[in-house]
């Protein structure tokens, strides 16, 4: 357990000394979401109906943008090698990296999402649902994304390839995450959506780290 804490602490320490990285992802999220009205027009009802989908797609893109860096720096400077030969379970190290990724990207996105909701005229209870759905759903992006990042580690054209591998796997999160908010808007009880989102989180928390560990061993073979 102490390896989990020390890796996580180091992740946060490094991020604190390079604040730009996490901040850029957050700004990207808001910029992408703000572009949609320029493309589809400012009609209020249409925007309100789109709001959840736009926020969620912007979150997926922001996650994909941030993921290549998850293991790349550690790979380049030899840290990853040390993590594989260390007498610590690799799964704990990967879990700490994933937790760090979520704290630095997923959590800020979820907290900033109401800003987008307000731009799109979402009522207060839908704003709350948007935050809740992102809080449950963004860890899935980190779990599955870590597997994608590990699979494309050191591969040429890694960023675009990572997007191709991982975006299709995000479809269920998008359906239930955005669906929860839309359901709330149209007066349907969103608890089914949120429960299913929780179930997906449970599944991805098992398979994501497993696949990431296996892929890291392959990448460093």
């Amino acid at each position: 357990m102490h390896s989990f804490v020390s890796v996580l602490r180091r992740e946060l320490q490094i991020a604190l000394r390079r604040k730009g990285d996490a901040l850029n992802v957050l700004v990207f999220f808001i910029v992408v979401a703000s572009l949609f009205p320029f493309g589809v027009g400012p009609e209020a009802n249409q925007l309100r109906a789109m709001a959840a989908g736009v926020a969620w797609i912007a979150a997926l893109l922001a996650a994909v943008l941030s993921l290549p860096r998850l293991f790349a720096a550690d790979h380049a400077d030899g840290t990853l090698e040390q993590m594989l030969v260390a007498p610590q379970p690799l799964a704990l190290v990967v879990l700490a990296k994933i937790t760090g990724h979520w704290l630095l990207t997923g959590l800020p996105l979820a907290l900033a999402a109401p800003l987008i909701g307000l731009q799109y005229g979402l009522p207060a209870d839908a704003l709350g649902l948007l935050i809740v759905s992102l809080l449950i759903g963004t860890p899935v992006l980190s779990f599955l994304g870590a597997a994608g990042a590990a699979l494309t580690l050191g591969v040429r054209g890694g960023g675009a390839l990572l997007a191709l591998l991982i975006l299709p796997l995000f479809v269920p999160v998008l359906v239930f995450g955005a669906g929860a908010v839309t359901a709330g808007l149209t007066g349907i009880n969103p608890s089914a959506h949120l429960s299913l989102l929780g179930a997906i989180l449970a599944v991805s928390s098992l398979i994501g780290p497993w696949a990431a560990c296996a892929a890291l061993r392959v990448a460093l073979d």
Partner: peptide, 16 residues
């Protein structure tokens, strides 16, 4: 536990 490996790369973090 009983082995130490140091590779080409120094595994030293710029930020720390």
């Amino acid at each position: 536990r009983e082995m130490l490996f140091l590779g080409h790369a120094a595994a030293v973090k710029d930020e720390l």
